[in-house]
Design a protein around this nucleic acid. Structure first.
Lengths: 339, 339
DNA sequence: CCTCGTTGTGTGTACGTATTCATGGAACGG
DNA sequence: CCGTTCCATGAATACGTACACACAACGAGG
């Protein structure tokens, strides 16, 4: 390995001068700078990251935690996060899967392996998060928020999104509406549900308890739940799913029973990931500006890394209903009118 | 930040002893060990990663490069890689997107930010890779290989996979077969095509040049290509796609023109990612053992990090045809018989 | 009782960088 | 021509850890 000291010797200067050239310091003559740069190129010099990190107390690396990278929502989020970090010259350490990863990520920040963390899948009652916040570590919550946490948070207006769906379904005359919930803890689940229920109630449409079913955020789980709903004697005419992935599961559940979407049942999702626009699903869904939210989260985090004294900021992005073929083809499902 | 020296003071021992406890060294009395551990817990001590990395010349981090994380194949690969790295106590830095990421990753290895690299999307003519190999840096190629590269490689037997598809289609009487190729450079593309063509030729089935079309590894690009094929006066009766993602695009392209799969046209993919088994696609495809390959790649890389003198190893995993509804429903497409 | 090996611990150092402080010379004003 | 300012550069140091080496205490074997 080539060190700055060796480069210095090669260029006939001191190690300090090499370091100055590396930092782009102004206190170096043009002549010297050229000699040093030539020496660096000739020797194939690369500064040693660990040594630099030790001296500067900065790793140049940011950690990102996702719950399930095979849920296609997260790759889209990660792509944008990754791009923003690249642009800022930061590296990205990725943690996947719920279990020990959260703790592991917070250990990493304690060890200085990362300068800050983006949590995309935080849930209530995370002790390690509390601890990190008490130590004033730079942390941003993206996608899922946490009311009680005093830290930067970037979320979608999930309550508003839920309301949009309620309004849309009620406005099209649906009366037997099912809600395919996600897990209990994530704020996204809770807020989407709250907005949905609120607005339905305001519009005088009942949400039958027996048509409210819970599924994991997975295709398979949603598919099963959907089959359960459609097997009823009084199946729903529309199903609002907690996110797009579960909506795909619902569509496939319907398909597996020979039901057609939207002729037999409307299906709606949330997120508007790319796959939602594929012909096979053509899914009506609530769009959240994924890339923009990711960029914002990175921006906030990098600011906070530079200045930990900033007071916590919350950015809530608007949601928008995107109507597609999973609801649009029939103005009102026949059975919804018949009943 | 708490240092080992402060812990030492708290425990009434020297810094060296704290370090020894940290390393699990045997040369520490039970009594001392307990005192030190208590002090570490009390002070909330975390060893400083950069300092440790500087001393040990190990970052405890591995880099992984993927071409496009929104291609659902890669999250599945990454999940397995990530899991294997977790189990080995290694962290994962992720690079996404083709452009500068390859170079950036190889810079990282030069700086000691990562101990080794997994490339999933290498292509012919990568200068930085050549350089890294000359410097004897630990590198493993996963998924895509490179004939010329003297390094560990973990691939699927893509030639055999291509042959399986050829045999299957020829065996079911298809005569107008289209091939929806991927990009030119990736070894996966080339090998799948080679096996496919070879076996078709052996079986005396022609692959019409006008039915061989090129698409990017994206849904949209494949969808367009498929529409082009189906718009012909003499459309194919079966389409073999370079991977599952493009097969989904092909299915959706057919759907968008009112064609039915498999009644009007058979569609086959490659990879057998999870989505291939979803009802909407129900895709016949060639399975490669993704998770097993990922585990193997990590294993080889960690071995090589420990011993760079190992001679390059190549592991080729078998492929297997998985027949599903995108081909199976009709034994032989009607039009294939008519012509 | 005197070696000698073993065990537990402390002292000192090196890893490679960024930065502070010191220094010598050039530029400049009077 | 001298004193002062400014600039380019070098010497020295600290970051926190792991480890080589030294050493004291101790028991065993002669």
């Amino acid at each position: 390995m080539v060190t700055s000291r060796q480069v210095a010797q090669l260029a006939g200067v001191s190690q300090a001068t090499v370091s100055r050239v590396l930092q782009g310091s102004l206190r170096v003559s043009g002549d010297t700078r050229q000699r040093v740069e030539a020496a660096m190129a000739q020797a194939g010099y690369r500064p040693h990251a660990a040594a630099r990190a030790m001296r500067t107390r900065r790793s140049g690396t940011v950690g990102v935690v996702v719950a399930d990278i095979t849920n296609p929502f997260y790759p889209q989020l990660l792509e944008a996060v990754s791009h923003a970090l690249d642009a800022a010259g930061q590296r990205m350490i990725l943690w996947n899967a719920g279990g020990p990863s959260e703790t592991s990520a917070l250990e990493a920040i304690g060890e200085g392996s990362v300068d800050g963390l983006v949590f995309t899948t935080i849930t209530e009652g995370s002790d390690p998060l509390e601890e990190a916040l008490q130590q004033d570590q730079p942390v941003v919550l993206l996608h899922r928020g946490l009311e009680s946490a005093r830290c930067d948070q970037v979320t979608n207006d999930n309550v508003a999104g839920g309301r949009l769906v309620a309004e849309y379904l009620a406005g099209h005359g649906h009366e037997r509406i099912a809600y395919l919930q996600g897990p209990e803890l994530p704020s996204t689940s809770r807020h989407r549900e709250r907005g949905f229920r609120e607005r339905l109630a305001e519009l005088g449409v009942a949400l039958a308890p027996e048509l409210t079913v819970r599924a994991h955020f997975s295709h398979d789980s949603a598919r099963r739940a959907m089959r359960g709903l459609l097997d009823r004697q009084d199946p729903p005419t529309a199903v609002f799913c907690a996110n797009d992935l579960t909506a795909f599961g619902a569509v496939d559940g319907a398909l597996s029973l020979g039901s057609h979407v939207p002729e037999d049942v409307w299906v709606l999702g949330y997120d508007d990931i790319e796959m939602a626009s594929w012909d096979s699903f053509d899914l009506t869904t609530v769009r959240q500006p994924i890339a923009e939210m990711a960029r914002t989260a990175v921006e906030l985090l990098l600011e906070r890394i530079d200045d930990r004294s900033l007071s916590p900021r919350r950015r809530k992005f608007p949601s928008e209903l995107v109507v597609r073929g999973s609801t649009a083809r029939a103005p009102v499902p026949v059975r919804a009118v018949d009943r």
